[in-house]
Amino acid sequence: MTAYSRDDLRAAYLAELARIAPEADLSSLDPAADVREELDIDSMDVLHLVTALHARLGVDVPERDYVRVTTLDGAVAYLATRLGAT
């Protein structure tokens, strides 16, 4: 399994978010804010995000955990736990 740091996971999450909301200024994103509200992301976008994270990191986020990846901080913590990140 590839070793990821929390910075790697943060970068990966933001990169996939940028594909979904290319017009958004993610440098000013509140890491605790729900991206569905902050970036006008709908349920299909969330499914797209989860699919992209699966392809990029190999983490299969089950449907019941979607809500845990809807904030930057939450997603990094969740992915770090799943991947055993440093």
Binding site: S43, M44, H54, P62, E63
Partner: peptide
């Protein structure tokens, strides 16, 4: 749908819509 999605990878999961 939930039962199906449990078995499917994200790329193949259903949305309720």
């Amino acid at each position: 749908l939930a039962a199906e999605n449990e078995k499917l990878p994200p790329a193949s999961r259903y949305a309720p819509a």
